[in-house]
Amino acid sequence: MKEIVVISGKGGTGKTSITASFAMLGGKDIVVADCDVDAADMHLLMKPNVKTEEDFYSGNAAVIDRAKCLNCGKCASVCRFDAINLIEYLYSVSALNCEGCGYCARVCPVKVISMVEQNVGKLYISATKADNMMVHARLLSGADNSGKLVARVKKEAKQIAQETGKGFVIVDGSPGIGCPVISSLSGADFVVLVTEPTVSGLHDLKRVYELVNRFQISAGCIINKADINQDVVNHIEIYLRENNIVHLTDLPYDESFTSAMTIGQTIVEYDHDKLADLLTVSWNKIKQILSKEQQ
């Protein structure tokens, strides 16, 4: 079983649209993992039918035992996040502001502050319209994605893939270069970098590739909207060559991306012409690279 992670660094490059297309093309032979949990939207395209759901706990928040609290205010004085304030003459924790560092619990003279694990959302395992299983999550308001949640989503997806003998896990990676992205990348066999020919597209591609390279995972790149700025495309191509990144394909700027999205379809369902062909060729190329690596 091979794990393919799609990331972009920059938002709005078409990462999820492309991942969902691969999820359609892979069909029965894959398991989908949506690790872009902060702004999970893969479910809009994959129409998952939820089979199991469970509450997910991550991170801590301070809770003061009101009955034993001396109301001395020491906790509030050390809190760096202004999460403890006097409300009606009593020190209280705002769970939304609390970062869970535990400093208050450490300094409390009567040890009545405990750190309580937070329910941050739900984890789902669903069947999609592409005849495959998908692991995804939904966060509650104010909750944030974490390496822990990403690791859990991936673990479930891999387990399903192993138990049911699937060839691939395809991961919609988290944005940026922080903890959730590192968790998205770790253990991956191949990374698909989706970029666009803009200054920030190239900048963020470089930034996220540094991470991929650090983990020594082989990578391929799709330049989306490749006809909007030839100059930056040239720069991207040089960068890909210098770093041994496979140039998978160029996709033209096409409003089908948006039109498909608004009716809840993937590109390969909506467009039966050029875009679908290019994406199919890319998907086959990725499979080919992975089967070669295995030999």
């Binding site: 991550s58 991170g59 869970g100 974490s146 390496g147 822990k148 949640l149 690791a151 903890c179 590192i182 968790s183 990348l185 770790s186 253990g187 991470l211 650090r214 983990f215 020594q216 995972i217």
Partner: peptide
């Protein structure tokens, strides 16, 4: 169960175990 900072935490553990060689897959962040 650790939400963030898994890398440094496990690195601390390795620091305490103090082996001569570590064999792994991706390597440290």
């Amino acid at each position: 169960g650790v939400a963030h900072g898994a890398g440094p935490k496990t690195a601390q553990l390795l620091f305490d175990i103090n082996p001569d060689v570590l064999i792994t897959g991706n390597g440290p962040g």
